[in-house]
């Protein structure tokens, strides 16, 4: 059997959820579960004007593909898409999309969760804050909680 290839994209423009789901499910009759995760830009209580997403071109796609392939193998997924945006993103706009398709729901939930936990800690993207008061804020700091979320998948 040929190993399933994930759909991976890093792009400036927005994505459409229905279109992305259809890319995985169209013409398929073996998929019983599709889980989607969309990460959006928050306004942080009105203080944030935009996030600026920087990435390492080439490595970002490669890391996302590596993580996606781990998830496909581990959870026997039938389809997986990961799309990450870069550039300036306003509150309310999409940042990231993960779609996992599987025979049954648990694998689809776990697959999407796994991809997001690893993507946050290993895919080379960085967020810079632009504040509502017009100033450029700081680079978002990495969170220990994100490392902990990833590490729960590494326990035997």
């Amino acid at each position: 059997m040929v190993a399933l290839k994930p759909f991976i994209r890093v792009q400036r423009e927005d994505f459409d959820l229905q279109t992305e789901i259809a890319m995985l499910t169209e013409g398929r009759q073996d998929i019983g579960a599709v889980v989607t995760f969309t990460g959006l830009c928050r306004d942080e209580g009105g203080s944030l004007n935009a996030l600026e997403l920087e990435h390492y071109p080439g490595m970002a796609e490669a890391e996302m593909a590596r993580i996606a392939e781990l998830a496909i193998a581990r959870f026997s997924l039938l389809g997986l898409s990961a799309v990450h945006r870069y550039g300036k993103i306003a509150p309310g706009e999409n940042i990231v999309l993960v779609i996992a398709a599987a025979s049954h729901r648990q694998a689809a939930f776990d697959g999407a969760n796994f991809v997001m936990d690893f993507l946050k800690t290993a895919a080379p993207f960085w967020k810079k804050e632009h504040l509502a008061n017009g100033s450029t804020g700081s680079w978002v700091a990495a969170k220990d909680a994100d490392d902990a979320a990833r590490d729960k998948w590494l326990k035997p």
């Binding site: 990460g39 997403l53 990435h55 390492y56 080439g58 490595m59 970002a60 490669a62 890391e63 990450h84 940042i95 990231v96 997001m116 993507l119 946050k120 800690t121 290993a122 895919a123 080379p124 993207f125 960085w126 967020k127 680079w139 978002v140 700091a141 990495a142 994100d146």
Partner: peptide
């Protein structure tokens, strides 16, 4: 650190590297 666009530890030898990425902890997603 990343050597040729793959994550590496600080004790990794850099001999033969074409490109070395140097960056803070990642905050995507």
């Amino acid at each position: 650190l990343a050597i040729n666009q793959e994550h590496v530890d600080h004790d990794e030898p850099i001999a033969g590297a074409r490109e070395i990425g140097i960056f803070p902890p990642m905050t995507g997603g």
